[in-house]
Each structure stands twice: as C-alpha cells, then as structure tokens.
Amino acid sequence: MTFKTTGTALAIVPQVGSLDSYIQGVNSIPVLSVDEERSLAIDLVENENIEAAQRLIMSHLRFVVHVAKSYSGYGLPQADLIQEGNVGLMKAVKRFDPSVGVRLVSFAVHWIKAEIHEYVLKNWRIVKVATTKAQRKLFFNLRKSKKRLGWFSHDEVQAVAADLGVSSSDVLEMESRMSSQDQTFDLPVDNDDGSAAFAPAQYLEDSASDLAEGVSGAQWQNQANTRLFSAIKTLDERSQDIISARWLDDGSKMTLQDLAAKYNVSAERVRQLEKNAMKKIRSTMGEL
C-alpha cells in the first residue's frame, strides 16, 4: 500500500488485490501506543509532517474495516464502505488535536461514520430516503432496530418512537421508505412484446403526439394571420407602412422618431396614427 499527497490532503492508494488481502494487510500493521500516537500527532500539528500523518492513518485502517463491517446489511460493496471510511479517517487525522487528551480512535469514529452514512444514503436507493439531519438519524437507528424486531407491530412502533424521541408517524413513514423498492421507469430491455408488463413511462401523456390538436392549432393560426393581413389592407398607405415598420418587419423596428423624420411630422403624430391604425385593425378583424 502506498500514499500520495496533493497539497495538504492525503489519499490512500491500495495496490491491486482482493478485499481479503487488503484486510489481512491492514490487520498486520502494528497498533500505536499512547505515547507513539501523541508524539506523531504533535509532529503533524507543529511541523505538518506528512510521514507522521501516514503512520497515524495506517495504524487505524483496521478500525475503519471494523466500522465498515457493521454496515454490511445495506447491500453495498464492502470495499466501497471501507474506502469511504478511509476518507473520514484522513479528515479526522487532519483535524485531530493531541492537546485535548483523547485517543485518535475516539475522535475519528465520528468522521468515519459520517462519510459512510453519506455514502449509504446516496447509494442505497435511487431516491433519497432521508434528507434532513433528523431523518438520517432515524434511518440508521431504525435499521439497527429492524435487525432486532423484524416487521413492526403497533406496540413496537410506539417503543421505537419513544426510544428515538420521534413521533409514531415518523417511524411508520421511514419504515415505508426503507421497505420500498426502486422501480424502472421504462420497460425492461428484455421485455417480450407479448408479455403483460407495465412501466410508469407508459402512463405519461405526450401532448405533442395529438395530431388533431396540432392540425386544429395550425388552422387557427393560419386563419388569424389571414384576417390580420386582410385588416391591414383596409388602412391607408401611410398607416400600413407605420404598422409594418413598427410591428411586422423581421429586422430592427423603426422608432417613432425615425417615422416622424420620414413623413416630416412630429413623433406624437406618428404615435396617434399608430394608435388609430391598431384600433381600426382590431375592429375590422372582429367583423371578418
């Protein structure tokens, strides 16, 4: 097993091999004594000695394996759980203060579990079962209780709720989330067309595929355009030019000042002509 450093961060890069070989390897690493651990921690804090950090991490890898094994019931790869726990261990070593007077293992356990918890919640279900801090605590405590109690009865729900300090409805809600299974959105790729199978995608309405509605909408738009241009043709030539320049040209629209200069009138007069033309267009379209 080798180490690599990036800035102040540490990353453990295990050599290729089986998980059993890895576990045997970390179990063979000697455990540090109290004095050795304190000396290395002081060296790391005062001198930022990377080798001291490496020794602290290596001597506690067996503890990460021990913690990760307690999460084997979640159906996630043991190697991934250990890897996430190692990340938590490295974060703990970086933040460990030897002057407090506690062993590193007591401080690191919280960081190790935090990283494993985050990984479990992200990967146990496609849809997250717990998002708030209270729900996360309930999720992991409920998992421990489920191993002991199986399916909850009414009395067991009350007992778990009282033990965890939450409501019965919270316990039932989390139990239903934990008991649910992920379902594919589309039909399985190996589905036979002749077999009876349903997927959520089959119940979605595709509004774009409504041919009748599409044809009806296109006809209405064509009719509206025809009526509009017919109404514009009832205007005098100057009013038609003003409406076209202000609203219908694909390029940049002309301003009131531009049209005022073109027809040698005031901008206010152009505004009045535009307003009267729009009013006549609306009236004519209502009659068509």
Rank of each mutant, 00 (worst) to 15 (best):
H154F: 09
G150H: 10
L142D: 00
L138Y: 00
A159P: 03
R148I: 06
K144Y: 02
E156V: 05
A134M: 14
S153T: 15
R143K: 10
Q158G: 15
V160A: 00
F152Q: 03
W151V: 10
G165V: 12
Q158E: 15
K146Y: 06
L149D: 02
L142R: 00
D155G: 11
L164I: 15
A159Q: 15
L149V: 02
K147C: 02
A162K: 15
E156R: 09
S167K: 15
S167M: 09
G150K: 07
Q158L: 12
R143N: 12
H154D: 14
A134V: 13
H154Q: 11
A162G: 12
G165Q: 10
K146I: 05
Q158M: 12
Q135P: 10
A161P: 05
Q135R: 14
L142V: 02
K144P: 00
K144Q: 08
G150P: 03
S145L: 02
K146T: 05
G165N: 13
D155I: 04
N141K: 08
S153K: 11
N141P: 03
N141T: 01
H154E: 15
V160W: 01
G165L: 08
D163N: 13
V157P: 02
F139N: 01
Q158V: 07
R143Q: 06
L142Q: 01
S167V: 10
A161Q: 07
L142M: 14
F152Y: 14
F139E: 02
L164Q: 06
K137A: 12
S153P: 05
S167W: 07
E156D: 14
G165D: 13
K137D: 14
F139P: 00
K137T: 11
K146E: 08
G150F: 04
L138A: 03
V160N: 00
A159C: 05
K137E: 13
K144M: 06
R148S: 09
K137W: 06
G150Y: 05
V166K: 11
S153H: 09
L142P: 00
Q135V: 09
G165R: 11
K146P: 01
V160H: 00
Q135I: 08
N141W: 03
G165A: 10
V166C: 12
K146C: 03
V157L: 09
H154P: 09
K137P: 01
L164Y: 06
N141M: 07
V166S: 12
Q158R: 15
F140M: 05
S153V: 08
L164M: 15
S145W: 02
E156K: 13
V166G: 12
L149W: 01
K146D: 03
A159R: 05
L149P: 01
F152T: 03
S167Y: 09
G150M: 06
A159E: 14
Q135K: 13
F140K: 04
R136S: 11
L149I: 03
G165K: 11
K147W: 01
A159M: 14
S145C: 04
R143S: 08
A134C: 07
A162C: 10
S153Y: 04
K137M: 12
K137N: 14
H154A: 13
K146A: 04
F139I: 08
D163P: 06
V160C: 00
V157K: 11
A159F: 08
F139S: 04
S167P: 11
F140Q: 04
H154T: 12
V166F: 10
K146R: 11
E156T: 10
F139D: 04
K147H: 03
